[in-house]
Each structure stands twice: as C-alpha cells, then as structure tokens.
C-alpha cells in the first residue's frame, strides 16, 4: 500500500494505492492520526487506486469517521472502485460515509 499525502488549501488529501487489509491498514491509521486528531480537520481519501479492502480497512475508515464527528471535522471518501464500494454497501457503510464520485466534488463537500 502506497500512501501519498498533499494539501489543497486547508484540506488534507490522502491518495492510496494498493490493497487495504489487516497488514496495511495500521500504516494508514498512523498517517491519518496526526491530521484527524486536530479539531475541525478536513480530510479527503482518494481510493481510485485501491482495488481491495477488507474489514480492517473498513474499521480504519470508521475510526476516522468517529474522530471527524467528535472534532467537528470532515471526512470524504472519493473515487471508490466498484469492488471497494460493494464492500461498503454490504456493511451499509455507504449510508454513513460521504462518498464523492470525483475529487473535485470531494473538495467541494469537504470545504462546505
């Protein structure tokens, strides 16, 4: 799993590539932590290059969402591949996450 981090204004964008599983999700969690522990943070996670996610990956996002809610932050996931989106749907997590089709849309949602 490769994780690239950049900033667009006050929005932190994480672009992931590879497979997100029990082995790789701790790295993502540790890279998200410095950002998600700040109040009113704005985070976009671009998943266009993630072709596999398991329940550990889902758990990492649920944890990040909890932190966003607690600290009045925003978390937007964008460009999910169909195979990844299906896993969110099975767990009904598509109902609780903000999912954007494009990164431009995600930026608008994160900034609003």
């Amino acid at each position: 799993m490769k994780i690239q981090q950049r900033q667009a204004g006050d929005v932190h964008v994480f672009e992931l590539a590879g497979e997100l599983d029990f082995h790789t999700s701790p790295d993502l969690r540790s890279k998200l932590q410095p950002v998600t522990e700040k109040s009113s943070h704005k985070v976009i996670i671009n998943l266009k290059k993630v072709n596999y996610i398991d329940s550990s990956g889902l758990a990492t996002f649920v944890e990040a969402l909890q932190k966003a809610k607690r600290s009045s932050g925003k978390l937007v996931l964008t460009e999910l591949m169909p195979s990844v989106r299906s896993v969110f749907e099975i767990a009904k997590l598509d109902k609780v996450f903000t999912l954007a089709a494009t990164e431009a849309e995600a930026l608008e949602l994160a900034a609003s």
Binding site: D54, S55, L58, A59, T60, V62, E63, Q66, V87, I90, A91, K92, L93, K95, V96
Partner: peptide, 18 residues
C-alpha cells in the same frame, strides 16, 4: 449491527455473507 457504529466486528459477517 449495520452500519457499524464502532470499528471492527465485521469479519465473520463478511465471510458468511459472501
């Protein structure tokens, strides 16, 4: 419970579902 409010607990659920 779906959607889960806390991280974890989905593993065997996914195995059975799939």
């Amino acid at each position: 419970k779906l959607p889960p409010e806390n991280p974890g607990g989905l593993g065997i659920f996914l195995t059975r579902k799939l």
